[in-house]
Design a protein around this nucleic acid. Structure first.
Length: 418
DNA sequence: GTTGCCGGGGG
DNA sequence: CCCCCGGCAAC
């Protein structure tokens, strides 16, 4: 496709050249030999590269768009059929449960198709996707097979819409779907009785209580040191406990059962929290974030929030400690006046304060600060902009290949740092 | 207008 | 990862 175009382009170029100087094609060689024209041509080529590539892209796009339409559509439809088939097959094979489905009409007709499409496709895919489908299948047993995440996300969507399952529980279905958007399947809520417990995450305290109120009170009084006003709750306790779900028969196991905690937002948690709404208004996103963290890291309120490494391009300047900001590690130059930006940057997190929250017993804002920091990261301290000449200015547009890589990528210049 | 470069996207 | 670019703010 592009081949047809490129020669054209070249021709256009050369024709332009030729028209300027000679009409003979042979003359081109001569003209290449002459020094100044050569140079000019090269520069011209460099400059042209941009426009050329643009043209190329545009043309390409046209061609592609006109051509490609058909194959994907067909493929998707095939895929879709396949998925329907497999899904149906799986469902039928799996559903040995009380409610007997009427045998699907489709698979019979299309089974041959699946066979021809891909011989392995029929059988093994059932294993891969069945793991996935098992969630909606009536059988409650946890299927050991694990689907590959990327595939599941993809194959899942097309299948769901065309073949809506006659499932009794549509509500959960939808809730589940929203979860699926984020990451791999969340362990499904067990239908048999699960007990929800609340575990204190405070360091060295693994206290488990059966009620949210209880755990909150525990945290308030024991860890936050708020003895007097037990009524007052600003939702701070939320960060120090987590809810864990237990099978009624299995006894509390701390960590393993902590993992499923994450879906708390979609599960039963809302009703179980008697926390005043007023305090929650600011926390919801923060809270979900905490829930996503691993219990271990979560269990230590003392954890410093990690210095987030910046682009490699700007090396360490933003991270440098105010006092020592005299030398950029890449060594190409030194900066004297880097003080202000780093100061504001590193200063805000108030790391010294939330270094020892336990010691005072006073409830600190540290969780809030830590959690609110990611969004604050969007507040970009733009680099003051180096006053020195950068690659672009030094070498100019035409010598772009002499620029440092960072400059070429339109990143902070590495060569002429200041 | 020009220049430096951040944030984000595509491969 | 590498490569590129839109867009923004500082010149």
């Amino acid at each position: 496709m592009t081949f047809t175009f490129q020669p054209e382009d070249l021709k256009r170029d050369s024709s332009k050249k030729m028209s300027h100087q000679h009409l003979f094609p042979l003359a081109m060689e001569e003209d290449v030999k002459t020094a100044d024209t050569k140079k000019a041509n090269r520069a011209l080529d460099h400059e042209k590269e941009n426009t050329r590539s643009i043209c190329l892209l545009e043309q390409k796009r046209k061609v592609v768009s006109s051509n490609i339409d058909v194959p994907p559509a067909r493929k998707s439809s095939e895929e879709l059929d396949m998925d329907k088939v497999t899904a149906a097959m799986v469902l039928t094979s799996l559903s040995t449960s009380p409610l007997v489905r009427s045998p699907p009409v489709r698979p019979n007709g299309t089974e041959g198709l699946s066979g021809s499409w891909k011989e392995g496709g029929g059988v093994p895919s059932s294993s891969s996707s069945s793991g996935y489908w098992s969630w909606s299948a009536p059988s409650d047993q946890s299927n050991p097979s694990t689907p590959s995440p990327p595939l599941s996300a993809d194959s899942f969507k097309p299948v769901r819409s065309p073949a809506p399952q006659p499932q009794p529980d549509d509500g959960i279905d939808e809730a589940e779907a929203s979860n699926l958007l984020f990451d791999e399947p969340i362990p499904r809520k067990r239908k048999n009785s699960m007990k929800v417990m609340f575990k204190c995450l405070w360091k060295n305290c693994g206290k488990v209580l059966s009620t949210a109120a209880g755990i909150q009170k525990h945290i308030r009084t024991i860890h936050l040191g708020r003895v007097g006003d037990s009524d007052y709750s600003d939702g701070e306790e939320d960060f120090y406990y987590t809810e864990i779900k237990l099978n009624t028969d299995s006894v509390a196991d701390g960590l393993s059962s902590l993992a499923p905690v994450s879906p708390s937002q979609s599960l039963a948690s809302p009703p179980t929290f008697p926390i005043p709404d007023s305090s929650r208004t600011e926390t919801p996103c923060a809270k979900t974030e905490t829930k996503l963290m691993t219990p271990l890291s979560r269990s230590a309120p003392t954890t410093l929030y990690l210095v987030h490494t910046d682009h490699a391009y700007q090396a360490t300047p933003p991270v440098t400690i105010p006092g020592s900001a005299k030398f950029t590690p890449n060594g190409s130059s030194f900066s004297i006046s880097w003080q202000s930006p780093p100061v504001t940057f590193t200063g805000i997190p108030v790391s010294p304060t939330h270094n020892h929250p336990v010691g005072t017993g006073e409830q600190r804002q540290h969780t809030h600060t830590v959690l609110s920091s990611p969004p604050r990261g969007t507040v970009s301290l733009r680099k003051p902009r180096g006053e020195g000449k950068k690659c672009r200015k030094v070498y100019g547009m035409e010598n772009r290949d002499l620029w440092c890589t960072a400059c070429r990528w339109k990143k902070a210049c590495q060569r002429f740092t200041d």
